[in-house]
Design a protein around this nucleic acid. Structure first.
Lengths: 216, 216
DNA sequence: GAGCGCCGGATTGTTGACAATATCGCTGGC
DNA sequence: GCCAGCGATATTGTCAACAATCCGGCGCTC
């Protein structure tokens, strides 16, 4: 990328979008953003183009940029891809895990259990992200990690509503435990299988949402 | 994207890079490209940024763009991802295939067989791409297709050298036949497995290259 | 003769202004 | 009262010029 400030602006705008500060389909007027992020239109445009390449915003000719609205159907497609990629990552993590990694993962699981017990949904959701992230770091698979980051960004909106489905933490906690068990046992195949099972259940939850949404 | 000409320039430049007209690490001087593609620097820059987002070129601050050199290690990572994604796509294709699709796939296989018999390497390589492409179209999985296109673009260079490995077509032809057989039999699991086996063998070939390259 | 610093050309990064286009409200006709 | 056409305004798309930076060659010193 030409400039370094572009990256900073892109990152700031990304977090703003992900935090829901800009709603899907909301127009992103360049001048307003320039003011907010104290950047020139040139820089801002470059940042927008970056985010467009990552699927967070989309351009319409002569109508500028808007926050891209990913449909539930698309979220399902993305999850189907994630199942495979996170499976790969889990397998690699099982091959490469060290003892300090093991301690870290077990600690995370313990905290997740506590969060579920105390019904701290937000905390659980946060730990969930941390766990997946930690496994990705252990795997050290740059290509998969980059793609997963992108895909996850596109579905944050749904991840939130998923975590609100009653009973979701209760079903996903043991799955996470199974994943960590297989990864720490250095069993790539089991790890991949456990991760796939976990995300398959996420996929099922999405499909349920999708059916629920149909007959409004 | 702002303009439509940007997309055209990006596409032209992409094919130029993929065809090897610009070598890895070769500098892409903006003015020269402007002249060649009859575009303003503004447009050209936007196109470059696009290609950078797709991993085909990379920027170095104040030193402009150059063709990105993907290492063999990276090609291996990419293939590991492709194994999973193409597996997903094959499974989906098996679920959705129609009769006319079936005829099309079988025709492609027949041509591949002929190409192998006559030792037409280039033709076989071309048909190979067509087959994978056809399966992707049947699957109609936009998310996976987009990612695969990107990943494939990054590895074209290696795909060429792979097809020159002696005996490669002989081993990959039956694998392709197995994939088509499973997909046309509408058996998603078999299709995914067959595709994975096929790409695993590609991966093995890459690893062999990588070892051969080590002791220079 | 080798190394170091300086200068000039080449190339990229950035800006502000201008042109093109869409959006929206207004006016007038029916 | 409503719709079509039209003009004003807001916004984006593009450009050409300017500033910043890097690269290579030159001379100077030791």
């Amino acid at each position: 990328m030409p400039t370094d400030s572009k990256a900073a602006v892109a990152q700031a705008l990304r977090t703003a979008i992900l935090s829901g500060e800009y709603a899907p389909n909301q127009r992103l007027v360049e001048i307003d953003l320039c003011e907010r992020f104290a950047a020139s239109r040139f820089i801002l445009r470059a940042a927008l183009q970056d985010l467009a390449a990552q699927g967070l915003v989309e351009f319409q000719r002569n109508r500028g940029a808007r926050v891209r609205d990913v449909s539930l159907a698309e979220a399902i497609e993305i999850t189907e891809v994630r199942i495979r990629l996170e499976g790969l990552v889990a397998a690699r993590a099982a091959e490469r895990i060290t003892m300090s990694d093991t301690a870290n993962l077990r600690h995370l699981v313990k905290e997740m259990r506590a969060a579920v017990e105390h019904s701290e949904l937000l905390r659980y959701s946060e730990l969930n992200a941390q766990l997946h992230c930690a496994i990705q770091e252990i795997a050290a698979h740059e290509t998969a990690a980059r793609l997963l980051r992108q895909l996850r960004d596109q579905t944050v909106r749904y991840q939130f509503s998923l975590s609100l489905v009653p009973g979701r933490p209760a079903t996903s906690l043991p799955q996470h435990e199974a994943i960590v068990a297989a990864v720490t046992a250095k069993d790539p195949e089991q790890a991949e299988a456990a991760m796939r099972r976990h995300l398959e259940s996420v996929l099922t939850a999405y499909r349920a949402l999708s059916i629920a949404a149909l007959p409004r």
